[in-house]
């Protein structure tokens, strides 16, 4: 079996994470923002699984399970909010939601 340098796995996770971050920072459409958040969460999960393989521990995968749960709950609430927002404002542009301005 060929060996994979474990840094490569982590670097992949980091690159995916930063891609998600870039999406969160640049997109104005809230659906894209939510998707980018999913990417970031998934990247974290990937990092855990890589670490699990590196240390030969199953606990990393348990953490991945937790992240999965968190992502499921977050998507459920987030999509509910998106539906509510679309109902009220008839848009998916988050820049409209600036009523909390000081």
């Amino acid at each position: 079996m060929d060996a994979i340098p474990y840094e490569h796995g982590l670097i992949l996770a980091a690159v995916l994470f930063v891609c998600g971050l870039l999406g969160v920072l640049t997109r104005r459409n809230i659906v894209f923002v939510l998707m980018s958040l999913e990417i970031m969460l998934n990247a974290c999960g990937l990092a855990f699984v890589v670490a699990s393989a590196r240390w030969q521990h199953a606990e990393g995968q348990i953490m991945y399970l937790m992240i999965l749960t968190l992502a499921a709950a977050e998507v459920a609430v987030g999509l509910g909010l998106i539906i509510q927002m679309y109902r009220r404002f008839h848009t998916v542009d988050i820049s409209v939601l600036n009523e909390m301005k000081g």
Binding site: L25, T26, S95, N98, E99, K101, G102
Partner: peptide
């Protein structure tokens, strides 16, 4: 001065956070 920071713009908050 601090009030000016609170723009209500979500992306601005995210950028500050990052």
């Amino acid at each position: 001065a601090v009030v000016m920071l609170q723009t209500g713009n979500l992306r601005w908050y995210a950028i500050s956070l990052v």
